[in-house]
Design a protein around this nucleic acid. Structure first.
Length: 895
DNA sequence: CCCTGGTCCCAACTT
DNA sequence: GGGACCAGGG
């Protein structure tokens, strides 16, 4: 068979070992995705396995999308049925939407509805979760200075990821703080239950609990899925592990693929033991190692391997590549963060030009430890007129106006969602103020009703002043009207659920009714599955609002992963497209609330961009309708879209966190901020286990590079906005790279406090300038000497870090420094023409000059006070009058 | 009740 | 640079 010929012997074995448990230890760049996709193709084409009985789990939609696409390429057209390729979370949502009511317990009081979540549950994101915690803390009178909501939330999440319930957490707790947290956890859970909401962790937990405790549900999935593949197995947490065990059933046809050196999510509960102890879980397991790297040059691979070799907790492996030699790793030591970014932009600009001459398609990535580092790189890229794409950061769905509309939709789907209700009850303002809300909240607490219930009660019993009542009524009517609009489809949806649960009700008989449940499962998914692969249909879609084509691939992922379960049995029931769609509801809401009108009246660029966003949202909803999705499915996608999903492989320059880079590759990679305290991050430096994880993160970053890897560090870095820049110490990871693999790309500039201690330590020929900085160029040729300056550098910098240097407060002018530097080396360095003026923040605007402000437009400088960092200028804007601006922050341009 | 501006505090990775 | 919170005026 043709495609097996493209595999090396180990890969081939991994593909052909279809029965029984298999653990594939796939080193970085060893063709992991290829093996998984070929394995799926092999199962279908050569092992005669029904596509729909294959389930592959990934961590991101992006990975699922790529996998689905590649499988499709291999076996496309063979069958309408598709393997299910889905993220853990999406899969769990589907399981729960179908059967969560099987977890309900009957109410103690007869006649009352059962307790537990219904199918109309909503998903709470990070900020929703935070709101719940805050309100619970407030209610219980917990001082949020002693115990921040953030801390509480992360401890709750920790407990969940380790499958501890509040009681267990309480029993484990050794201090009053943890006891308090356990108590808050209990209340938090109650709140979510009352709101018919699940948080991210719950999705995994509840799906697992469902499979564990309800035999007929487990049986259904065990019959349905015969072959299980798990990607990034090193990053699975306890609930995911248990889910895997449940799904593996008796057959143990589990194929787990992972690399213990790339485990970087322990803070999210990922348990590296899952991969280290696979053989204990499945004694009959076959272990296959993929050690040939097809991605990187030998130099890069050797450097990365040397770094990760310092870890103790690993199985160890010998990655090798046939790409002998290669360019040395670049190392650049910048005076400060700004310069570091400019250097990267300069280097990348050159690289792009050269690659273009060679007719290659260049792709470069800048990787950093923390997302806040992106700002400097964005500015540098802009200054060079380079197009770039940032992965992560603010997501579309986190914008206020989008969250507002999504919250409306959530309330319409599930009015008991009190968090969303609170968000929209007075948005836009309709005269429902604090005192009114207080009253309703108190009523809810007294009666045990949700806010929505209490709101109805308050109206019925006329518990508020007339004015407040009429505002409340109009809000209530808005929601009711939207629900009524939806009810055409809504009723159908409900009936379907009722039928299903009735059919299933007495569970003992159920086991024999497999065909019916199977049918029901098929009903869950979109009827027009075949159309899901028409690329044209997804042109402007949905859950990614970046570049059009990246949206297309993501939405394709969504459709495949979500609807892939569709079988030829697909239903007739939901076949008719609903007449009222999510998009119609959205339009109705926007119209009725006057949301856009109010923004228009604001008449600011900001407001218009919000309007644009709302239009995007409506577009997304229309696309969702075209895919035959109901409101709950639309909301699920909105909740589960992730930062990593907006990566667009066609972008020439990508900026992203190291975490987001997992699984990707680039010809040129910049690994920035290699400083103690930043990378490794200060919060990890005290625990050896966490430092090992940082080191794995470094390994992940380095192994993204195919041809060229550049490591950078800033000697001085401003940590928090206004603070003085602090001297940094080179990251320990830098020192773990063998020196002969490194080529220094720049010379360091440092202040006297650091520099003088080292004068003469390196070769001093590069000393230059008689300014207050002592600049020294160090050669890496003499290993001993370099090592010694490294050690000394560390010592002296540590010292100056403690003392906070006095001189560095004077800002570096990065451009000048870089050009000086290049000039001193006889290279030409000019600011590219394409770039907008000079670094504005550092140039003084004088009275009388015309300037442009992003928000206020053009104006005239009126007066100037202070100098340097402190400079404030007063500008006369025709429309906004006199404004006093801090020059450093106001993004003023010369007009 | 709503909006604005000032102040304080924060700033790790993410499904 | 920014979000949360609060005081004070419209």
């Amino acid at each position: 068979m043709s495609f097996l010929d493209q595999l090396n012997p180990q890969q081939r074995e991994a593909v052909e070992t279809t029965e029984g448990p298999v653990l594939i230890l796939a080193g970085a760049g060893s063709g992991k995705t290829r093996v998984i996709t070929y394995r799926i193709a092999y199962l279908i084409e050569h092992a005669g396995v029904m596509p729909e009985s294959i389930l592959a789990m990934t961590f991101t939609n992006k990975a699922a999308a790529e996998m689905a696409q590649r499988v499709e390429k291999l076996v496309g057209g063979l069958s309408i049925a598709k393997p299910v390729i889905s993220t853990f979370h999406s899969f769990c949502v589907r399981v729960l939407r179908r059967d969560i009511e099987a977890l309900q317990i009957p109410s103690a009081t007869p006649g009352k509805p059962p307790i537990g979540h219904t199918k109309k549950f909503v998903i709470y994101d990070e900020s929703d979760m935070q709101s719940v915690v805050k309100s619970v803390m407030k209610r219980l009178g917990v001082d949020d200075k002693q115990l921040t909501p953030r801390t509480v939330l992360s401890r709750i999440s920790w407990a969940k990821n380790h499958m501890l319930d509040p009681q267990e957490l309480y029993l484990q707790s050794a201090d009053p703080k943890t006891e308090k947290i356990a108590h808050l956890f209990e209340e938090y859970r109650k709140e979510l239950r009352k709101a018919n909401a699940l948080d991210f962790d719950d999705l995994l937990l509840e799906a697992t609990r469902l499979l564990k405790t309800v035999p007929h549900v487990r049986d259904y999935y065990n019959r349905r899925f015969q072959y299980l593949l798990i990607d990034e197995y090193q990053d699975t947490n306890r609930p995911q592990y248990e889910l895997m065990r449940m799904l593996a059933g008796e057959r143990h046809n589990v194929c787990a693929v992972g690399d213990e050196d790339q485990s970087i999510y322990s803070w999210r509960g990922a348990d590296i033991r899952n991969i280290l102890e696979f053989e204990q879980d499945f004694p009959e397991a076959k272990i296959i190692r993929l050690e040939q790297n097809y991605r990187s040059t030998q130099n890069i691979l050797q450097a990365a391997s040397s770094v990760v070799a310092n870890n103790v907790r690993r199985k160890g492996k010998n990655l090798w590549t046939s790409r002998q030699g290669g360019a040395k790793l670049g190392y650049y030591e910048a005076p400060d963060g700004e310069n570091e970014a400019l250097f990267a932009a300069d280097h990348i600009a050159k690289y792009l030009r050269e690659a273009a001459q060679h007719g290659e398609t260049p792709r470069a990535a800048v990787l950093y430890r923390t997302n806040s580092q992106s700002r400097l790189f964005e500015e540098a890229m802009r200054r060079y007129g380079l197009k770039y794409k940032v992965v992560g950061g603010f997501s579309f769905y986190e914008r206020a106006e989008i969250k507002d509309m999504i919250s409306y939709l959530k309330v319409i789907l599930n009015p008991d969602d009190s968090i969303s209700l609170l968000r929209v009850i007075n948005t836009p303002t309709r005269g429902i103020g604090k005192s009114t809300i207080d009253t309703i909240e108190r009523l809810a607490l007294e009666t045990g009703l949700s806010l929505w219930g209490a709101l109805g009660e308050a109206i019925r019993r006329q518990l508020l002043p007339q004015r407040a009542l009429s505002s409340l009524k109009s809000f209530q009517q808005l929601i009711l009207d939207a629900q009524a609009m939806l009810s055409g489809t809504f009723v159908e949806h409900l009936e379907e659920s009722v039928e299903e649960s009735v059919a299933r009700a007495p569970s003992p008989v159920q086991v024999s009714e497999a065909p019916q449940t199977l049918q029901a499962a098929a009903d869950d998914s979109s009827p027009d599955d075949a159309a899901a692969f028409d690329p044209n249909e997804f042109e402007n879609i949905a859950f990614d609002f970046g570049e059009p084509d990246s949206s297309a691939s993501v939405s394709r992922a969504v459709s495949q992963t979500e609807e892939g379960a569709s079988s030829p049995l697909a239903d007739q029931q939901t076949g008719a497209a609903p007449t009222i769609s999510t998009a119609d509801i959205l339009k109705f809401l926007i119209d009725r609330t006057g949301y856009i009108k109010i923004l228009e009246a604001e008449d600011t660029p900001e407001a218009f961009s919000r309007i644009e966003n709302l239009r995007e949202l409506v577009n997304a909803a229309m696309d969702s309708r075209d895919r035959g999705e109901s409101l709950d499915q639309f909301l699920d996608h909105a909740a589960l879209i992730s930062d990593a999903d907006d990566y667009d492989e066609r972008a020439q320059i990508t900026l992203m966190s190291l975490h987001a880079a997992k699984g990707l590759e680039f010809p040129l990679v910049f690994l920035s901020g290699l400083e103690e305290g930043l990378f490794p991050h200060s919060r990890t430096m005290l625990q050896p286990d966490e430092v090992e994880e940082e080191r794995r993160l470094c390994y992940v970053g380095m192994t993204r590079a195919m041809d060229q890897l550049v490591l950078t560090r800033a000697v001085y870095r401003r940590r928090h906005g206004t603070d003085l820049p602090e001297a940094s110490v080179p990251s320990r990871f830098l020192e773990e790279v063998p020196i002969q693999l490194i080529e220094e790309l720049g010379r360091r500039r440092s202040t006297a406090s650091v520099g003088t201690s080292r004068v003469g330590a390196g070769d001093s020929h590069a000393r230059s300038r008689s300014d207050d900085h002592t600049s020294t160029h160090y050669s890496y040729e003499d290993e001993d000497q370099s090592a010694s300056w490294r050690a000394r550098d560390r010592a002296s910098a540590t010292q100056s870090m403690r003392q906070k240097p006095t001189t560095p407060a004077k800002p570096y002018n990065s451009i000048e420094n870089i050009s000086e530097f290049f000039a001193s080396r006889g290279k030409k360095f000019t600011i590219p023409k394409a770039a907008p003026e000079e670094p504005t923040g550092k140039r003084g605007f004088r009275p009388g000059q015309r300037v442009r402000h992003p928000k206020y437009g053009e104006g005239t400088v009126y007066q100037r006070e202070g100098e340097g960092e402190e400079a404030k200028i007063t500008v006369q804007f025709p429309r906004f009058g006199l404004k006093k601006l801090v020059e450093k922050y106001a993004q003023l341009e010369r007009a």
